[in-house]
Amino acid sequence: MVAFLLWLLLLVFCWPIALLAIVLYPIVWLLMLPFRLIGITMTAVFSLLGAMLMLPARVLRGRPA
């Protein structure tokens, strides 16, 4: 019986937080989308720069002596 009352107490305290999370999650996702796109772009730029800087070393390493 005590466990059931604890579950009811948890329900009473947590359902507003759960509803708030359901409502706010799409808004937060939309707000974070530009930052994710900037992060993907920066990763691509740094990968390109790294590949360009490592290209001479790969060309020289692959050439027979």
Rank of each mutant, 00 (worst) to 15 (best):
V2P: 01
T41V: 15
V28I: 13
M42A: 03
L48P: 03
V23I: 15
R61D: 01
F13E: 08
M52Y: 06
L6E: 10
L19A: 05
P34Y: 11
M32G: 09
T41G: 00
P64I: 05
A65C: 14
V45L: 01
M54T: 10
M1T: 12
M1Y: 11
R58C: 08
M52F: 10
W15V: 12
W7F: 13
A51E: 02
M54D: 09
A44K: 09
W7Y: 08
W15P: 11
M32D: 04
P64A: 12
A57W: 14
T43Q: 12
L11S: 12
L8V: 07
P16K: 03
P26W: 01
L55K: 01
L48F: 04
A57V: 14
G39T: 03
I17T: 06
R58G: 07
M42H: 07
L31Q: 09
P26L: 07
W15L: 12
A18S: 04
V59N: 09
L9Y: 07
L10R: 03
L11T: 06
W15I: 06
R36N: 15
Y25L: 15
P56S: 02
W7A: 15
P26Q: 00
G62Y: 10
P34N: 02
V23N: 00
L49M: 01
A51Y: 11
M54N: 12
L48I: 10
A65E: 15
I17Y: 02
T43P: 00
V28T: 05
L55M: 02
P34M: 00
R61F: 00
A44L: 07
A18T: 08
T41N: 13
W15E: 08
A21G: 07
A18N: 00
A44Y: 06
A65Y: 07
L20S: 00
F4R: 11
L49N: 11
W7E: 14
L33A: 12
R36F: 14
V59I: 10
P56V: 06
A18V: 14
L60C: 04
M32V: 08
F46E: 13
Y25P: 03
A44Q: 01
A3I: 11
P26K: 07
